[in-house]
Nucleic acid binder design. Structure first.
Length: 821
RNA sequence: GCGAGGGUGGUGAAAUUGGUAGACACGCUAGACUUAGGAUCUAGUGCCUGACGGCAUGGGGGUUCGAUUCCCCCCUCUCGCACCA
């Protein structure tokens, strides 16, 4: 016999069939729909193990749901814009488009070779104008609605990539893509007003019960809502006011100074003409430089300088010196804060350094005020005028109301979330469909001129100006309003824009009338199950949620949230670290497929760990998976005739037949439960392995008893059906070998019979003082009294009881007896 | 610093209304069949012990007849956030 079943031939055969018969092409149809989506890949060149794992998990679910009778949408495509294409083009002297499409062709072949059941009719590449033209149209619609704007601000600049990054794309102070240090830089750029949806993005997280808590928590924190008050402090000797945001209005009577961000527009003005002017100027410059130099996460020593001006506390009239302070963030709140050293640790440290007085206004309920730090806990107000004696939580509302009534304050909610900057100074991205006319100003491109095509003739260089800025043929245009000369926007969009709506485009990817075919979208959306890496917990998932809400408000969709259930699969690890080229521990899927076949690779990546955990790659483990499939194959092959023949159920089963029947039903039960429960395929597979072990031991010629052929057939059928979603070529072949026609995809999932799954004999553990001392074999319904009787008379047990008196006997039904002495 | 989630054999992992710890698999040991084996099959395999038995789910304490599971303290690893007022 051959060492291995001929996986190469079998896999080829079924892949050809699935493709030529278009088995996985779907349309809006009767029956419950199920939209399964895995995060689409960047076409970097080759599929890696992370893809294999992600897409295998997805394919199992897709096939499983089909067997359960769902109309399953399972599309695949390419997140095809992005910087690596430009870098590769420079390096290999080719064109980004060429490089990208070559990669796509290669990777598509690899995915086909894995046997994934995609509807390839729906394939999308986001770098095609037929895709991005709708993105440009939508951009203009959002612009007209006021949800997109242009501003000059401090942005995150990656010198390596020569482009701006969004806040979400800066990871630990480094570029998410190339890991080089990000530096602040002042630039103009286009922004999506994601903050307009901050409240809803936060609130709707509560609707996402099918998402991991970890991701919900991260998003909640990223959005960072905090409620408090905005208060205007009059500036002494000026008509101007200094506006601050605080979450602790209850401490306002304890303010002893004010802190203002160095970049704040008032900072220089406040010292103008005074003795402090030079000092303040110098401080502002120095802080700016220090912030650029500071490595990420490094907390600068608190430092500040007196501006020479004072604010007046609107409640008390107390003079509060205004300091420019290096720890005050311009980007959050109003860029200025009231400082209450007694009740804020940062203010305390600053005050201690510059010898500014503290004033206690919140008295702790029990303990004394701490000596050498701020007290930030709850308490009762003191030194606070009319509010003395009030609980500090209640005082927050009361003081805010008083400030509101007197006209110098109001309740205020602030978010940590900032608007999404999408301008990229790169070539390989969607052109931003805007232009600048000397007469008419910034204007959107006329709809009839869409799409703004990326020019194909382009010179790319390692550094220097943005490529489109060097193409007059591209940027020289005419104004749609006045017909005069105008200059096109030469920045392109962040590639996260394409991935924010691709899931919706899949519902009718070649729709020519607009961005979204509303009917198709209404049928398929939302995505029932989304699968991808946890590294997108903030980035992509937040942007896609925002886009969904914006598309809904523009009338394209009728859903609030795109992804009902989210599975974040763990990384693929080898030798304790993430697989990566730089670490030299990558395993190439194609090599493995050649050696073992796609089914074995699929099986191992499902078996080695539950999907949400990291998967430790182990070549020997792959051998094990292969061995298992071969074992099953050999059995089916050797019993072909029996399995093809017609059998009748035997009324009275002998012991070993009954055992196998029972195990089969138990296995179907466990498998079905575990797959529904968080897709724990690893335990599903182990259940089938157990069943297989029992099956293979069954037809032993040395035995007196023979297993009923009908039961063998039943067991084999169950194994084939259960494993089909995981190892589809293998099972399709076995299905055919055992005399069946038709695709298993549309064959009903096996049922189990609780009665048949039931054990008639069970093992009862006997414990003495909580330690296992003996075991009893009893029939299922044995009464507590009988069990008690048997337990105390058990020889082994007696030895441990000795002549000590029995205090108590605990009986747990069908499980154990504990004798307490 | 704050927040979240982990820590179980040589390895990947099972085990939840608290009830047989280690299913399944890898590896390892011995044997069988073989010209050969990185194929296949059989048996064994948490640790200590000659055995009876004892000890074991990061460490320590607690609740309980009984704790991987619940509570408290500590150690450690991973991830997220990081002066957000």
């Amino acid at each position: 016999m051959a060492k291995h079943y001929n996986f190469a031939a079998i896999e080829q055969k079924w892949q050809d069939k699935w493709q030529s018969e278009q088995c996985y092409t779907v349309k809006e149809d009767k029956g419950p729909k199920y939209y399964l989506l895995e995060m689409f890949p960047y076409p970097s060149g080759r599929i890696h193990m992370g893809h294999v794992r992600n897409y295998t998990i997805g394919d199992v679910i897709a096939r499983y749901k089909r067997m359960r009778g769902f109309n399953v949408l399972h599309p695949m495509g390419w997140d095809a814009f992005g910087l690596p294409a430009e870098n590769a083009a420079i390096k290999h002297d080719t064109h980004p488009a060429r490089w990208t499409y070559d990669n796509i062709d290669y990777m598509r072949g690899q995915l086909r070779r894995m046997g994934f059941s995609y509807d390839w009719q729906r394939e999308i590449a986001t770098c095609g104008a037929e895709y991005y033209r709708w993105e440009q149209k939508f951009f203009i619609e959002l612009y007209q609605k006021g949800l997109i704007y242009r501003k000059k601000t401090t942005v995150n600049w990656c010198e390596q990539c020569q482009t701006v990054l969004a806040n979400e794309q800066v990871i630990d102070g480094e570029c998410w893509r190339c890991d080089s240090q990000v530096i602040p830089r002042e630039m103009h750029g286009w922004f999506f007003k994601i903050t307009a949806y901050a409240e809803e993005l936060l609130a709707d997280l509560d609707k996402l019960g099918g998402w991991p808590d970890k991701v919900l928590t991260m998003q909640r924190h990223w959005i960072g809502k905090s409620t408090g008050a905005e208060i205007n402090f009059p500036i002494e000797g000026s008509t101007k006011k200094l506006t601050i945001f605080t979450t602790r209005p209850d401490t306002i009577f304890g303010a002893t100074f004010m802190s203002i961000a160095p970049e704040h527009p008032l900072t220089l003005e406040l010292s103008k003409g005074g003795s402090t002017e030079d000092e303040v100027k110098e401080f502002v410059e120095r802080t700016k430089a220090a912030k650029q130099r500071a490595s990420y996460g490094e907390e600068l020593d608190k430092e500040g300088v007196f501006t020479g001006s004072y604010c007046l506390n609107p409640f008390t009239g107390r003079r509060l010196p205004i300091y420019a302070a290096n720890f005050v963030l311009m980007e959050y709140g109003s860029g200025a804060v009231m400082a209450v050293p007694a009740h804020d640790q940062r203010d305390y440290e600053f005050a201690a350094k510059y010898d500014i007085p503290c004033l206690e206004v919140i008295h702790p309920p029990t303990a004394e005020m701490p000596e050498d730090q701020a007290y930030e806990g709850p308490g009762t107000l003191i030194n606070s005028g009319d509010f003395n004696g009030m609980d500090n939580i209640r005082a927050r509302a009361a003081i805010t109301k008083a400030a509101t009534d007197q006209g110098f304050g109001r309740p205020k909610t602030t978010f940590r979330l900032r608007d999404w900057g999408i301008s990229r100074q790169r070539y390989w991205g969607t052109p931003i469909p805007m232009l600048n006319c000397g007469k008419c100003g910034i204007q959107p491109v006329a709809e009839s001129d869409l799409p703004v095509q990326l020019p194909t003739e382009v010179k790319l260089a390692k550094s220097g100006k943005s490529p489109l800025q060097q193409l007059p043929d591209f940027y020289e245009t005419t104004c749609p309003c006045c017909g005069g000369p105008a200059r096109r926007e030469t920045d392109t969009m962040d590639t996260f824009v394409e991935s924010s709506w691709y899931y919706a485009r899949y519902t009718n990817p070649h729709y020519k009338e607009g961005m979204i075919d509303k009917q198709a979208a209404a049928y398929w959306l939302p995505v029932d199950q989304y699968i991808g890496g946890v590294e997108h917990a903030i980035l992509h998932l937040l942007y896609a949620r925002f886009f969904t809400k914006a598309m809904r408000d523009m009338g394209y969709l009728n859903i609030d949230e795109p992804f009902t259930n989210l599975l974040t699969q763990g990384m693929v690890i080898k030798d304790g670290t993430k697989m990566s080229k730089s670490k030299g521990n990558v395993v190439d899927p194609s090599t493995l497929i050649e050696k073992y076949g796609a089914d074995t690779v699929r099986l191992f990546s499902l078996f080695a760990a539950p999907p949400e955990k990291d998967l430790e790659w182990n070549d020997k483990g792959v051998d094990g998976a292969s061995r298992f499939l071969n074992k099953v194959y050999r059995f089916v092959d050797a019993n072909r005739d029996l399995l093809k023949s017609h059998t009748e159920p035997d009324k009275t089963l002998n012991q070993i037949s009954r055992n196998l029947e029972r195990k089969t039903h138990q296995c179907v039960k466990k498998f079905s439960t575990d797959i529904e429960n968080n897709f724990h395929f690893n335990t599903c597979i182990s259940a089938v392995m157990e069943l297989t072990n029992l099956l293979l031991a069954a037809p032993d010629n040395d035995r007196q008893e023979k297993v009923d052929p009908h039961i063998i057939k039943q067991t084999v059928t169950a194994i084939i059906k259960l494993l089909y979603p995981m190892v589809p070529h293998f099972c399709a072949e076995l299905w055919e070998m055992t005399g069946h026609d038709g695709l298993l995809d549309h064959t009903a999932w096996p049922e189990f019979d609780l009665q048949k799954a039931k054990e008639d004999e069970i093992t009862i553990v006997i414990q003495v003082k909580g330690k296992v001392r003996s075991r009893l074999q009893v029939s299922l319904g044995t009464s507590d009294d009988e069990l008690r009787e048997m337990a105390v008379n058990d020889e082994k047990t007696k030895k441990f009881i000795g002549n000590k008196p029995i205090k108590k006997i605990i009986v747990v039904k069908n499980k154990l007896i504990n004798i307490v002495i």
